[in-house]
Design a protein around this nucleic acid. Structure first.
Lengths: 266, 266
DNA sequence: CAGTGGTCTAGACCACTGC
DNA sequence: CAGTGGTCTAGACCACTGT
């Protein structure tokens, strides 16, 4: 085992009130911030840190867990702890549901991803599609104006093989049953294009947006690293009469997205 | 010390592959989910859990740290570990910068908060205001069309005494110098109203939105509990010629906000 | 004061990785 | 195989809270 690169990490201040594990964390953070450890670089191993600082291993692990919680590092069993590389990012613009996109046959995810992220080398995929008729939750029923049953379309989106988004669309069953919307592939332009063909003229969407840490379920389906939040987005599509046609419940790995909205000043 | 309420937490499965601390976490989580521990309730103390499960204290602490990372609990030194109560939430609607609000003399934070959250008993405050002329960062300069110097307005927002948002506005200096915009209180309707009075007709805003874990600085200024992400919002205000008049860089405690946007379907 | 969580030690065995 | 991180023990002393 090679000795720790000298000068990268300093010594502890025994007179300081700051807890030892925080002092270690501070020093490692500074080294990362100053670029002495770059994205993807391996940090010194726990054993090296133990020897460098003369503390017990639990103390070192405690330091590193600080970074885990911030999403700054990822640890790989048997390999080491690495500075987290910044992943591919999808930009979602607020005109992504403009009719002109539907008319060009673009679907919500693949269409736009091809347009906006594929340049960066991404590979958009859809996954584990599930289409079911079911009873809506209380919240969904309220948002949709109280239907007794809904058509649910659930699917997962991948970017470059990585799951980045899990979405569930709900439509009143009377609207969607026995239409292309109930098919796995609803055709060019996605279900919004089909809704318009069925005579429901889309007027606007409302997106309600929160950020929080993932639930254990979400951690699993999105293979979330620790210290990465999710963006929870609930979109409702309205027709020109103000009727809610669809509610889409989306959970996104926050490190894979930048959302962009245009607001009128008037 | 009273014995643990029987039935609330079960026993470990020694044949399971699942790590002991995860099994404990699973059981505590289930108890919370099923409402056996409600918001604000104190969880069993570490000592109680040690005795109930017959494991070492570090193992119990490891279990609890899982919930810390999820923002599900808060621990208070000397008191105990508590199920995190859901805080007050501010709803930000996408019409919050509509001219009619400015004309009614509402400012961005207090005006709208009064309108939308005070019903829930909130108390909006602004804090630690700082107004400086400075050199913009590279990113800010780009967004603002390359001014050499900017006016920076920094302030913190509190809700019910809790810091929930930290914002920094940047305006090209030639636009803002020696105007009410450079004053601590820019007057009714905020700086956007002043910009329009100065002849800059606002056309639209763009909001760019990310979610991530807070930096140590942000943790301090917003007094963030662990396991709570921040929403990072960068808003740019444009005039009718497409010139960027202002960029506002906002960091919000994610558990205090729901954002809502209206998108056109056309 | 007793009870709580916060920090820390000095070990141990395990599972995973790469050579 | 050696090196890595993952889990776990059985203690210790401390700082903070409430009575």
């Amino acid at each position: 085992m090679p000795p720790l690169r000298s000068g990268v990490l300093g010594a502890l201040d025994p007179t300081s009130d700051r807890a030892v594990f925080r002092q270690i964390a501070d020093q490692v953070r500074e080294a990362i911030d100053k670029g002495r450890f770059k994205e993807g670089d391996k940090l010194p191993s726990e054993t090296e840190l133990v020897e460098h600082y003369g503390v017990s291993r639990m103390t070192v692990r405690n330091s590193l867990s600080v970074f885990q919680g911030e999403g700054l590092v990822v640890s790989e069993h048997g390999k080491g702890v690495f500075v987290r590389p910044r992943p591919l990012v999808r930009r979602l613009a607020s005109d992504r549901f403009a009719r002109r996109h539907r008319e060009q046959g673009k679907a919500a995810f693949t269409g736009e991803t091809e347009a906006e992220a594929e340049a960066a080398g991404s590979r958009p995929e859809v996954d584990s599609l599930e289409i079911k008729e079911e009873r809506p939750t209380r919240d969904m029923a309220t948002r949709l104006g109280g239907p007794r049953r809904v058509l649910a379309r659930r699917r997962r989106y991948l970017l470059d093989g990585r799951p980045v988004e899990f979405a569930a669309s709900y439509l009143p069953l009377d609207l969607a049953r026995n239409t292309p919307i109930a098919q796995p592939n609803p055709g060019p332009g996605g279900i919004y294009a089909r809704l318009e063909e069925l005579g429901h003229q889309l007027d606007h969407f409302n997106e309600e947006l929160r950020a929080r840490m993932p639930t254990p379920d979400e951690t699993k389906t999105l293979r979330m690293a620790s210290g990465i939040p999710v963006i929870h987005l609930i979109r409702t599509a309205y027709d020109t009469q103000g009727r809610a046609l669809e509610v889409c419940d989306i959970v996104m790995a926050a490190d894979a997205y930048v959302l962009s909205y245009q607001l009128p000043a008037t």
